[in-house]
Design a protein around this nucleic acid. Structure first.
Lengths: 261, 261
DNA sequence: AAGTGGTCTAGACCACTAC
DNA sequence: TAGTGGTCTAGACCACTTA
């Protein structure tokens, strides 16, 4: 077999960013993550073949595959046998229902019809700045979407993003985007949403919401506060949703394939 | 290297249950799952070493490890270097917050104080029977728990399980259980909850809930309908929770490490 | 036919735990 | 010291995709 001491001829790997982890495959994983953060490969693009990457990082194919295994498990990369390995891309028929979790009470899943209600530029409050990891008073974009399912408005989304990450975002571009919002973030700004945190509570409809949702003011709604993250837990979007759960409901976590603690 | 054709000397593996999958490691995974379902190893017990299992299933250690890798990712097994591989066991400090998702609005996690409010035997309605996968009119146990956090009652759980799976369950045993409910299911009935499905909507407090939660009748509450599953998606528990989200909230999914679609 | 990822092997060495 | 899982290697062969 001629197996030699592992650390012996380390060769250090010509990783573009020599991030150091406890083990070789973690180093490789971090190296790929760093290349992704540096936008070396963009959403939907193929990354180099396993053979090439194993040479680049100076590890065996098995070790390289273990690193990619984890990135695939994290929904950051996607493998296609015979084709290559790709940067995961948000699409209507892929990942959409991982982030859109409102379904009809009979379980029927359906794509929402989204319409932009408002679009404004503002300065970040201290609270919003802390969430988005930017300086207070930095400029942000805030916009509101109305989402309808089966012809009925069931949900109002209030979305805030930092201008410094979404330079040049316009109301027109938002309206004319051809696919999902997160797909638009990828294509137009090379920002890849790879995870979210959500907190839910009961709230009551204010005037705008009651108007759009066609319910009485004060009607109890399900409030979802979401922070969306890119690589390395970088917060890129704050979203507060209000859902009318009279005929729809929110699909919670499945508690298998879940993070520890 | 002397690598020989993979399928050549298949040896078929002396799996206790010869479940067939598309690949060897899937076969091994199903074989281990079948042994778990057959209660060959119980919650918290060690399963045989990787070497022994690789001999039992007639595969190399690498293949055996790939099967166990997936079972570990599914939170069904737990590895401890130097000790062995164990059947995952529900404990206060392990897995608890994967299933208990209510936290204070400042994010503070805390263990609830649980008190049993009622315990009854009944017959399954058609709807409950369908959910639990039993015949209508089969006997079930129904009990109600009140959960308090920081001294305040925030949540009422209505739980239903089939008598045929929980033979001999008594109110006293429930009250005297030393650990968490799912740990009790494991120790007393060898039932391992490994996943859940949850649906959330807004509901209003009925008289019992308003009384226990000390809110006015009709106060909007967060309603969580959960089905808990054992191996092979066997439904073992139905739980309907009502949460007062005035000072607490529900932690949603993180949308990384999540199942497809 | 060439190139990609997918599976599987047979082993060496390391790190950790118990006795 | 013996036994366990954790990492890593070097390669063979399979399945799939594109051309």
């Amino acid at each position: 077999m001629n197996t030699l001491k592992n650390g012996a001829a380390h060769a250090a790997g010509a990783a573009s960013t020599p991030v150091i982890g406890g083990t070789r495959y973690k180093e490789v994983k971090n190296g790929i993550l760093a290349a992704l953060s540096a936008k070396e490969w963009k959403g939907g693009e193929a990354i180099p073949s396993e053979k090439r990457l194993s040479e680049r990082f100076g590890v065996s194919i098995g070790t390289l595959r273990k690193a990619i295994d984890e990135l695939v498990a994290d929904n950051i990369l996607v493998r296609h046998q015979g084709l290559g390995t790709f940067v995961a891309q948000h699409q209507r028929d892929r990942y959409f229902f991982r982030f859109f979790r409102v379904v009809r009470q009979d379980g029927e899943k359906s794509y929402p019809t989204v319409s932009l209600v408002s679009f404004t530029k503002a300065k970040a409050t201290r609270e919003v700045a802390a969430i988005l990891g930017i300086e207070p008073n930095t400029r942000v974009f805030s916009f509101v979407n109305r989402l309808a399912l089966h012809g009925e408005t069931v949900m109002i989304d209030s979305i805030t993003v930092a201008e410094e990450r979404f330079a040049g975002l316009t109301e027109a571009a938002l309206r004319e985007r051809p696919s999902t919002l997160y797909n638009f973030y990828q294509d137009a700004f090379h920002i890849n949403v790879v995870g979210t945190e959500e907190r839910l509570r009961v709230a009551t409809a204010n005037e705008i919401e009651s108007d759009l949702l066609e319910v009485a003011p004060g009607t109890p709604l399900l409030e979802v506060r979401r922070i969306a993250y890119s690589y390395h837990q970088e917060p890129v979007e704050l979203r507060i949703s209000h859902v009318n759960t009279a005929r729809y409901e929110y699909v919670g976590p499945s508690a298998s394939h879940e993070e520890p603690l």
